[in-house]
Design a protein around this nucleic acid. Structure first.
Lengths: 143, 143, 143, 143
DNA sequence: TTTT
DNA sequence: TTTT
């Protein structure tokens, strides 16, 4: 097949704590519920409007799953890259149903926690584990 | 509002001709069904594997909708940028259903046709309409 | 014209306060110096390595320039989208020189401040101006 | 250091054949010169304007370098992802000079050739090697 | 269900 | 230096 691209970039907040699952083969899988919000001024009424979108994120990368489990929690702000995947399943009535998820695979996904310090200040047990402090801007700036 | 990001980039082929709708207020809306394919070598078996993903794309940008209607057809290869949106609807059994789409809004979406010449050569009826090549449509033509 | 794409996404910290300029026609232009850092474990030595990259960012979008001027300062963390542009200039010895910049144009660029609260807490003079938090500037405020 | 992002996405045409180099340790490095073109309608004069940007791309990924060497040539259209890197060097007058490049590293870069069939038709020796035909849209389309 |  |  000719080359194709399927990439999603999200930056938003977790609506709840990560859900951790383990597969039969021992791999950790983490599900995130991420909210992104878009706001704009309505052309007609002139008033501010806002729409929140909720995204299902599934982390199949073991390394990223561990990070998510350890450092993320309800309210965490994250930046992530993954790809779209629609899963087919059958509901109780025997009907086909589809669920679209953003999946992060090994070597093909990114996950960055954006509020390490805040998390520490608000102090959940998970947050306290969030070591990687915000580095100083050392090094010479060439421009 | 806290800054957030919700961006999708797809490059793939249309599985069928664009579906054109017109809203009550006269705006053109175009639906695309786009396939992306990912291939990789299985770690265990060593054999080549491939998975095709289908994406629902909805173009709310009038300029891009016109371009899609005029130049795209089944098999066209496109590059596009939009954002994820999940629509809730009720099925015949009164159950909530969700459909996730990639939406292209005015001033927030891109659409590039990647096989203009091929289309002309292979000659579908729509493709032949794309004769003026880089001709103007209304100043919003992205290719 | 054939469709093309030229997009840069950066998330990093400002190495110094924004530099504000005004064009002859009264438009505000803001220059940012943004650091991104990549870290990895060396395959041979096994030790952690890190490389910081500095980026010149030029904001030609008036709305985003105002936001940058008002809310950003040395150390601010930002997420931005723009496009690559290489400028040619002549140095004092009459030699051609090139400078590559990430430019943010109106309707084609994003800028999101990622540490609003921190800024206020650490309290630079600029940061204090950001008090109204999500206050309106002119309807183009991205955060 | 806190998480950062540095990503470039380009889609454009090669201005000349790839330049292939081999490092002391036997790794293949390929340099590409890629043009992207942006066109817009001038707000004042109303006339169509166009600006071409040239990008230096350096492929350090051995796999992608081989693909580039084998399949790409002057005029090829490519889609690629990499990151920005500014190299410092000293010119003949002993002055510091900087060159900004888009680098594609192993496991952190993409390269997709977009005109396989065209290339074959126009027939350069390299082009004829460009096997991967444009796949058929088989598989059931769920929507 | 989040965040501002 | 490309492409349309």
């Amino acid at each position: 097949m000719a080359g194709s691209e399927n990439m999603v970039i999200l930056m938003g907040n977790l609506g709840k704590d990560p859900e951790v699952h383990t597969t039969g083969s021992g791999n950790m899988i983490v599900n995130l519920s991420v909210a992104t919000t878009k706001s704009w001024r309505d052309r007609d009424s002139g008033e501010r409007r806002e729409r929140t979108e909720w995204h299902r994120v599934v982390i199949y990368s073991d390394g990223l799953a561990k990070v998510a489990d350890k450092y993320l929690h309800k309210g965490s702000k994250v930046y992530l890259q993954g790809s779209l995947q629609t899963r087919k399943w059958t509901d109780n009535n025997g009907q086909d149903r589809y669920s679209t998820e953003i999946v992060l695979q090994p070597y093909d996904g990114k996950l960055i926690m954006l509020d390490g310090q805040n998390a520490q200040r608000t102090g959940g047990s998970k947050a306290e584990a969030s070591a990687p402090a915000n580095g100083d801007l050392d090094g010479e700036i060439p421009f």
